[in-house]
Amino acid sequence: MSDKEAEFREFVGGQMEALRGLAYLTCGDWQLAEDAVLGALARLYGKWGRVENPQAYARSAVVRAAIDETRRPWWRREQSHGDAMPDIVARDEILNIDDRVHLRQALLRVPVKHRAVLVLRFLEGLSVPQTAAALRCPEGTVKAYTSRGLDTLRRILGADLSIDERLEARHEAV
């Protein structure tokens, strides 16, 4: 095994779980998220050593791949048997699980690009310019999506969402 491949393996081992979560929050499906991560990291493998910031590259590639996964034509999607079965929602004994399901359902109702902006900005802590660069769109678009995404999420959740002031301060400094 070459040094470059050893470095790549170390990077994947350290980032894969975070990237999988990022992709999941963007596309709303764990399997699609894993496919997106696999495809993005396979592309990164061929460019390893030539990419200046592998983490930013992987993050951007994963989110865009996850967005693409939600746009795949129906005939290219693998139809899992489970998808055809209605979920039976039962009140869980553990409140956190119920909250997660509720929150995930709310997130899925936010348009995918708005959702991607919210995830990158408020989960990954990227600034507006960084988010714009990751999604390859203008900063104004990022701001508009942030605003609309938050409004949608607040309306669905019926709660007053606050954003992390530390993050905002950091964003201001960038």
Binding site: G13, Y24, A42, Y45, L107, G125
Partner: peptide
Amino acid sequence: LSDLLETAREDAPAARYTVDDVVAAG
């Protein structure tokens, strides 16, 4: 919101792909 998002991605199922799968795909 950041806490909500962290919560939403918790409880992930076991990953289907390993590091070896990623390297092989690459």
